[in-house]
């Protein structure tokens, strides 16, 4: 009896130690990663770098074009993917008469979210850059990203639409409401937290995307003089610039500076997704 409980206590203590070690290891890895990036990156990050166009001749390192390219990619992609994705999700969950068709589309969307992004890049390059003759350009990058994140937006929107109780819909229709009015006044307000959270996470994916963009949006770092020029010419995002500086140009310190910017952005995006979701749920 004595023996057994001693044994069990040892076993318990050992197990707890192992679990604590695992947790500590994960934390250490995370802290180490963040630490290395910030320690190497932040000292190299200067105001001049953030606000200037690079020039080899004048020996200027600048990532302003890459920042603007990233902003353009995020804004352009969301501008197209958001209405399209939310619209498709509303159609699938609220209108589609054929539930078989809706199920097939849902399955397809689910599968598409798991495909490695480089495949989207390949297809985007073949279609937009070559077939349509757009070459490497921000617009090719935007459309490729739209295709890439559309399934995610459709899925997250559908999931949040499905959490809206059926009884709201019945009550509204029972009062003589039309379908669209019911969706606008009850279904969307009740699911907006999920939709917004999904969007913010999609922004995170866009900001962090590199493979699909290397193929389609290119890697140039030139300030465009107009929106038209910005969209139709090659432009590297921050992630692509990170790759170019550290691998092609051997300026690893610039790479780290960009990495610390991306790190801060990612943290901000995740944090705002959490805050916004919580805030909207409370209202």
């Amino acid at each position: 009896m004595e023996q057994l409980s001693l044994h069990r206590r040892m076993y318990d203590r050992g197990l707890r130690l192992l679990l604590r070690l695992a947790a500590a290891l994960v934390c250490a890895l995370l802290a180490g990663l963040i630490g290395v990036i910030f320690l190497q990156g932040l000292p190299n990050l200067t105001w001049a770098m953030l606000t200037s166009e690079p020039s080899v001749i004048r020996n200027i390192t600048g990532i302003l074009p890459n920042i603007l390219n990233t902003v353009a990619l995020v804004a352009g992609t969301l501008l197209i993917a958001l209405p399209l994705g939310v619209g498709a999700a509303i159609y699938l969950t609220e209108y589609a008469a054929s539930h078989r068709l809706a199920a097939v589309i849902e399955f397809a969307a689910e599968t598409l979210t798991g495909i490695p992004s480089i495949l989207y890049g390949l297809v985007g390059m073949l279609f937009f850059c070559q077939k349509l003759g757009w070459g490497s350009s921000i617009r090719a990058g935007i459309l490729t990203l739209v295709i890439m994140i559309l399934p995610t937006i459709v899925r997250t929107t559908q999931e949040s639409l499905k959490t809206v109780p059926q009884s709201y819909r019945e009550a509204a229709l029972g009062l003589g409401s039309g379908k669209w009015r019911m969706i606008r006044t009850l279904v969307l307000p009740a699911s907006v937290d999920g939709i917004v959270t999904g969007c913010i996470l999609a922004v995170g994916r866009i900001v962090g995307e590199s493979a699909a963009l290397l193929y389609t949006a290119g890697s140039a770092a030139v300030l465009a003089r107009s929106l038209g020029e910005l969209l139709t010419t090659s432009g590297g995002s921050l992630t692509v610039a990170l790759y170019m500086y550290s691998m092609e140009r051997g300026k690893i310190e610039v790479g780290f500076a960009i990495a610390s910017i991306l790190m801060v952005l990612t943290l901000l995006i995740d944090l705002s997704a959490k805050l916004v979701g919580r805030k909207l749920r409370r209202n």
């Binding site: 109780p165 009884s167 709201y168 019945e170 009550a171 509204a172 229709l173 029972g174 009062l175 003589g176 409401s177 039309g178 009850l186 009740a190």
Partner: peptide, 19 residues
């Protein structure tokens, strides 16, 4: 149908007020 449902209203088994 919206006209009909306005004339013929409905109260459900479980109270279902809107949020």
């Amino acid at each position: 149908v919206t006209w009909l449902r306005r004339q013929v209203g409905m109260v459900f088994q479980k109270p279902n007020p809107f949020p």
